[in-house]
Computed example of a mutant assay.
Amino acid sequence: MKNMSIRSVFALVLPLAATLLAAPLPALSAEEDAPLVETPDLPPPPVNLKPSVEVDGAYVVLGDLFEGVTKYADKPVAYAPEPGKRTVFDARWLQSVARSYGVMWQPVGQYEKVTVTRASQVIDQAQIAQEIHAALADHNVGPSADVVFNTRNLQLYVPSKAEARVGVSNLSYDEHSGRFVADVEAPVGAPDAQRVRVSGRVYTTTSIPVFKRNIAKGETIKESDVELITLRESEVRDDTVGSAEDLIGKTPKKMVRAGTPVRDAEVERPLRIAKGALVTLVLQTPQMTLTTQGKAMENGAHGDTIRVQNVRSKTIVLGTVSDNNMVSVSQNAETPASALLTN
């Protein structure tokens, strides 16, 4: 080795160096290739209190109270109020819930709160009365009867997605006084149905004609002037006109206001003949027609029988008002044809 020349050493080293230089370099991994950057911790999203909220189910969940909650948002934290009612959660209770579920929220003041309302459908008094009325059919209560509750503004509330049907049970009815007591519930048959005991009275009703507009004295009443309204029978006087036919063609003795029940004494048939007026007396038979002038002794409407005095003979006869200033008489023992003849 000592005797080896420099030329011999280079002869051995150079081929080895060439081989090493020709070999590929090992590839760097992605982690080795990428620069090292520190990722800062992102702050949690802000959480805000919802001052008011409407819920549709039986529970209040965490996300109903706090806006921005991601974890446990669907976690029930309280029972929802009954349909149609509301519950208020104060700052102390809200802070306790937030702490229990790791929600980063603190009340600004002691008066912070959340008002939770339960979504619902309203069953009004008219619908309840309709069901009571249907149940009273078994007690011979007619369809025109009026059901009146002792409680004003009676209402039932049911969940917004429930079927808004009313059930009636334990109905008690006194036919003499018209009073009733019953239990109603909605939704019918539901375990959480709202139940309430109701009481009231049934009034029989009737339809009577009234005027659509004010009708003046002497004005002839037309069919288009009349309409029917429904009143309790106890509110209708015995002398009230009961049908439109009894008004049409007549005239008021004085002005009658629209919508007011009309009494029999307030209307009359239009006068065709006034007392003291000169009229034509007519006697008609198959063989002849006799006419003469007379003087009306009383007022007369169409179809009325009135007394008329023959102007010339002064004989008084009975006749029927047939037209304006015309009275028809018939020949009989009391009214012979000679009574119409002038002297």
Score class of each variant (00 low, 15 high):
30 A>F: 12
10 F>Q: 02
98 A>Y: 02
138 D>M: 06
271 L>D: 05
332 N>W: 07
86 R>F: 13
277 A>N: 11
241 V>F: 11
320 T>G: 01
128 I>Q: 08
269 R>W: 15
144 S>D: 15
25 L>C: 08
263 R>Y: 13
111 Y>C: 03
230 T>F: 11
76 P>Y: 02
105 W>L: 13
312 R>W: 12
136 L>I: 01
267 V>I: 00
283 L>G: 06
181 V>G: 13
37 V>H: 02
258 A>R: 10
142 G>M: 11
243 S>M: 10
21 L>Q: 04
244 A>W: 13
49 L>M: 07
191 P>M: 02
37 V>L: 11
208 I>T: 09
276 G>C: 13
32 E>T: 04
84 G>R: 02
105 W>E: 03
74 D>W: 01
266 E>K: 01
312 R>L: 14
35 P>C: 05
17 A>H: 09
266 E>V: 11
77 V>K: 01
120 S>L: 11
225 D>T: 06
149 F>Q: 02
209 P>W: 07
266 E>W: 08
310 N>V: 07
83 P>K: 00
126 A>T: 15
87 T>S: 14
140 N>E: 13
110 Q>Y: 11
20 L>W: 05
207 S>G: 08
186 A>M: 03
184 V>Y: 04
35 P>D: 06
102 G>V: 10
61 V>C: 10
193 A>S: 01
319 G>K: 03
143 P>C: 07
142 G>S: 10
275 K>Y: 07
222 K>R: 14
273 I>M: 00
305 T>C: 06
116 V>N: 03
4 M>R: 12
147 V>Y: 03
301 A>D: 07
319 G>H: 03
308 V>S: 08
31 E>I: 11
12 L>R: 12
229 I>S: 08
331 Q>S: 08
194 Q>A: 14
134 A>M: 10
267 V>D: 00
298 E>I: 12
215 I>E: 01
31 E>G: 15
68 G>W: 03
157 Y>T: 04
329 V>Y: 09
78 A>I: 00
127 Q>G: 10
13 V>Y: 03
19 T>C: 12
293 Q>E: 14
169 S>R: 00
111 Y>W: 10
237 R>C: 09
199 S>I: 08
48 N>A: 15
57 G>C: 03
45 P>M: 05
187 P>E: 00
118 R>G: 04
328 S>L: 11
139 H>T: 02
275 K>S: 09
76 P>C: 00
119 A>Q: 13
228 L>H: 14
317 V>N: 06
1 M>I: 03
160 S>M: 05
245 E>D: 13
164 A>F: 02
239 D>L: 02
9 V>M: 11
243 S>A: 09
189 G>S: 09
326 M>A: 11
180 F>M: 08
250 K>L: 02
312 R>A: 15
57 G>K: 04
145 A>S: 15
293 Q>I: 14
209 P>G: 12
240 T>Q: 05
328 S>H: 13
90 D>A: 04
324 N>H: 14
270 P>V: 05
308 V>D: 00
307 R>Y: 11
107 P>F: 08
